[in-house]
């Protein structure tokens, strides 16, 4: 019996420490924002906090997939999240997102009509576009003497050991599919198998499969060619004048990152306030200038410096956007992608 009392005391002490350490939070309303790394101007967040007298807990992720897993299984509670197109489609389907109250987001009117009402979220019931971009090849003029206008150049043996691919299964398999003339959203096993063979064939030429490091490597001229998202090309171009960006003629991926509110959000009104704030033209312009990607906010364009507004990298012509495809959720094909990627990676 005595032993039990002591056990109680110990448990009590442990519980008290736990309670005390969580109970001393502030009274200010807070929202939890979950965004891609390096994808917002930090001053903008500070301004939002001051203007609304709230606290923003800001957290980042590196890929749509790891964001999805932590929303779905992580027991987390975020109020605003920034997923991409195909992931929004999946999250809507699985009932992970809350419908937006558009009355609270009047600045939705600032969004370019071209980017509203897209297939992954008809009528924009769940999402407000934030940034968009393409996938293309960034290359160093001094190291590449061929014309870069096709994905084929990434299979050119001349550039052995000088090619950087994206360490992202969806994008790399997409590149191989486009090179072969197939859709990036193919659900044909034979086409995917061919894409896998293509990537295995390419592997000896690849210097590395990279994520964010691509910026440093291209700026330092460690590689000649790299597959990148368009905004990275702008960031690299700011630091190295020899670098150019090209969208291959076979077509590429057009993507959108949007703001959404997950089902388990604790402060939906404030989250909508935040989305509205992010779409004020001058705020959107500051974010755009900071991150280098292309804004979906048409009113923000006037606030941008000329070199960004007139950049063909960030704002390609309609002609260049002719062959683009938006990713669709692979659904049951996810495991096929996954296994292709393991096989490519494990290949020696």
């Amino acid at each position: 019996m005595k032993k039990n009392i002591k056990l109680f005391i110990t448990l009590g002490l442990i519980l008290m420490v736990g309670i005390l350490s969580t109970a001393c939070g502030e009274d200010k309303p807070t929202i939890n924002v979950y965004n891609w790394g390096d994808y917002v101007d930090p001053d903008v967040i500070r301004e939002f906090e001051e203007e609304f007298g709230v606290k923003v807990n800001y957290d980042t992720f590196a890929t749509n997939e790891d964001m999805y897993v932590s929303i779905k299984k992580g027991g987390t509670s975020y109020d605003v999240v920034f997923p991409s197109d195909y992931m929004i489609e999946r999250m809507i389907e699985e009932g992970l997102l809350e419908k937006l109250n558009k009355d609270n987001i009047p600045n939705l009117a600032n969004i370019d009509e071209r980017f509203l009402d897209l297939e992954f979220d008809p009528n924009n019931e769940y999402s407000v576009p934030y940034m968009w971009g393409t996938v293309g090849i960034v290359y160093n003029k001094n190291m590449v003497d061929d014309v870069v206008d096709s994905w084929d150049i990434l299979w050119n043996e001349k550039y052995e050991g000088q090619i950087l691919m994206l360490d992202s299964q969806r994008d790399s398999i997409g590149v191989a599919l486009k090179k072969l003339g197939y859709s990036m959203n193919t659900r044909n096993l034979e086409e995917l198998e061919e894409a896998k063979e293509e990537l295995i064939k390419q592997k000896p030429l690849v210097y590395a499969y990279v994520g964010d490091e691509v910026k440093d490597l291209m700026v330092a001229e460690e590689a000649a060619l790299a597959v990148v998202w368009s905004g990275e090309a702008i960031a690299i171009g700011r630091e190295n004048d020899n670098v150019e960006f090209a969208i291959p003629k076979e077509g590429t991926n057009l993507w959108f990152d949007c703001m959404v509110i997950p089902k388990n959000a604790k402060n939906k009104e404030l989250a909508e306030e935040f989305i509205n704030f992010m779409n004020r033209p001058e705020i959107a312009a500051r974010n755009t200038e900071y991150v280098g990607y292309s804004t979906a906010n048409i009113k923000a364009l006037e606030y941008l410096p000329d070199y960004i507004r007139n950049s063909s990298v960030a704002y390609p012509s309609d002609e260049e956007l002719q062959n683009v495809e938006i990713f669709k959720d692979p659904k049951d094909f996810l495991s096929v992608y996954d296994e292709i990627w393991v096989e490519v990676k494990a290949q020696r």
């Binding site: 890929t63 997939e65 790891d66 999805y68 897993v69 779905k72 299984k73 360490d167 299964q169 592997k203 690849v206 210097y207 590395a208 499969y209 990279v210 994520g211 996810l334 495991s335 996954d338 990627w341 393991v342 990676k345 494990a346």
Partner: peptide
């Protein structure tokens, strides 16, 4: 350079990206 799929990477991939 991401060219190696080691067993640790495989576990990481299943947990973080695939969710299996």
């Amino acid at each position: 350079g991401g060219q190696y799929m080691l067993i640790g990477n495989l576990v990481e991939q299943q947990y973080l990206w695939v969710g299996d």
